[in-house]
Computed example of a mutant assay.
Amino acid sequence: MQSIRYRLIEFFVIFVLVPTSFALEFNIWIKMAIGCLGFVYVVYVLLKVENNKFKIRQHINWKQFWMRTAIKLISISMLTAIYMYIFDVENLFVVIKNKRMIWALILFIYTIFSVYPQELIYRTFFFQRYESLFRNDALFILVNAALFSLAHLFFKNTLVMVLTFIGGILFALTFKKTKSTLLVSIEHAIYGCWLFTVGMGEMLGFPS
């Protein structure tokens, strides 16, 4: 285990400096290179330093997980549908009504290539590397959610920042309870796919 000083520098670079820099205007290929290098570093640390085996946890309470997720999804669905009906009714369910093949393709790509890497970085890596540095669990959850929201700063959209902060709290709580990257990725995918389905995908970077 590296020193606390090393982990604090690592924390600042990965979760503050890099996401903030992505909000600046510079070459997209450089941004992609930085992102790929960062992800490779995260996987390396998880495997070689934290000795993570990337195995599905045993004794997962699937029934409880699906019940909790369903309750949260119902609440999220109602609130976002009402928001779209009031403020952007033209885009309410626009993609699934007009471009179902694109809708299905985007959901697949988003789940595999966006959700899982995010959860690997912001929950698995973040919890294993930094949870021991915080004495207060609530503060740790809030910091995790705030940094997850900061990762979406490049969208330059206040609503996106609010939604990802709330999502960050939900995902952090799920990971805190289950310690399962699989479960938190499933939950993340479900909520993200719903936002795209209800018509909020464009502001979250989904092509529509």
Rank of each mutant, 00 (worst) to 15 (best):
Q2T: 08
I4S: 08
L8I: 13
V13T: 12
F15T: 09
V16H: 05
F22G: 04
A23F: 13
A23L: 13
A23V: 11
L24P: 14
F26E: 13
W29R: 09
K31E: 09
M32Q: 10
M32C: 05
A33D: 03
C36I: 06
G38M: 11
Y41P: 08
V42G: 07
V43E: 11
V43K: 09
Y44F: 15
V45L: 15
L46Q: 12
L47I: 15
K53N: 07
F54V: 05
F54E: 07
K55T: 11
H59P: 01
N61H: 10
W62F: 12
F65W: 09
F65H: 11
W66R: 00
M67E: 02
T69F: 05
A70E: 00
I71E: 02
K72V: 05
L73F: 11
L79P: 04
Y85D: 02
D88I: 01
V89Y: 05
L92S: 02
K97L: 10
K97T: 02
M101Q: 10
A104H: 03
I106A: 12
L107M: 11
L107C: 12
I109R: 07
R123A: 10
R123H: 13
F126C: 14
R129G: 04
R129S: 14
L133H: 15
I141W: 08
L142E: 02
N144M: 06
A145C: 00
A146L: 04
F148M: 01
L150G: 01
L150Q: 00
A151Q: 00
L153I: 04
L153C: 00
F154L: 02
F155V: 00
F155N: 02
K156I: 02
L159Y: 02
M161D: 01
T164A: 03
T164C: 04
I166K: 00
L170W: 11
L170T: 03
A172P: 07
T174I: 15
T174F: 09
S180Y: 14
T181R: 13
L182G: 13
V184F: 11
V184P: 11
E187S: 07
E187M: 13
H188W: 05
I190T: 06
L195F: 14
F196P: 01
F196Y: 07
G199R: 08
G201R: 06
M203W: 10
L204S: 06
P207G: 00
